[in-house]
C-alpha cells in the first residue's frame, strides 16, 4: 500500500485516496467554441507515459481535497504532491534531469 503525502494531511495510506486520472487536462473555458477533434482529445486522449506521470488524487477518506501528484509509473515512487490549481513542477524541482523523462505538452 502506497503512502501518499496529502498536501493538507501529510502521509496517509493509499486506501484513503481515490485516483483521479491524469492531471493538468484543462477543461476548455468555452467548450462550445472547440471543434470535435479538440473536444475528443480533451475527453479521451491521455499521455499514459512509462515513467513520470502527473496525476490527480483525492483524499477521499480524509480532508476530501483533490490534489496533484508526480509519480513514476515504473517504480511507483511518488516524487511530489501539490495542491490542485498549482502549476506542474519543473523536472528540476522533482530532482530529475530533463533527459530522463520526456514530458508531453
Amino acid at each position: 500500500m502506497l503512502l501518499i503525502d496529502c498536501p493538507h494531511c501529510g502521509p496517509r495510506p493509499e486506501l484513503e485516496f481515490r485516483y483521479g486520472g491524469e492531471a493538468h487536462v484543462a477543461r476548455p473555458a468555452e467548450p462550445a467554441t472547440v471543434d470535435d477533434a479538440q473536444w475528443m482529445a480533451f475527453l479521451y486522449l491521455r499521455s499514459n507515459p512509462k515513467g513520470l506521470h502527473f496525476e490527480r488524487w483525492r483524499h477521499m477518506s480524509g480532508c476530501g481535497r483533490f490534489f496533484n501528484c508526480a509519480r513514476d509509473t515504473v517504480s511507483d515512487k511518488i516524487l511530489k504532491t501539490y495542491p490542485a490549481g498549482q502549476a506542474r513542477p519543473s523536472l528540476e524541482a522533482l530532482g530529475l534531469a530533463p533527459v530522463d523523462h520526456e514530458v508531453r505538452a
Binding site: G20, R56, R58, G64, R65, F66, A84, G85
Partner: peptide
C-alpha cells in the same frame, strides 16, 4: 465526488 471534482478543480 463528481460535484466536488468540478467545484475544486474546474
Amino acid at each position: 465526488a463528481h460535484m466536488e471534482d468540478y467545484l475544486q478543480t474546474e
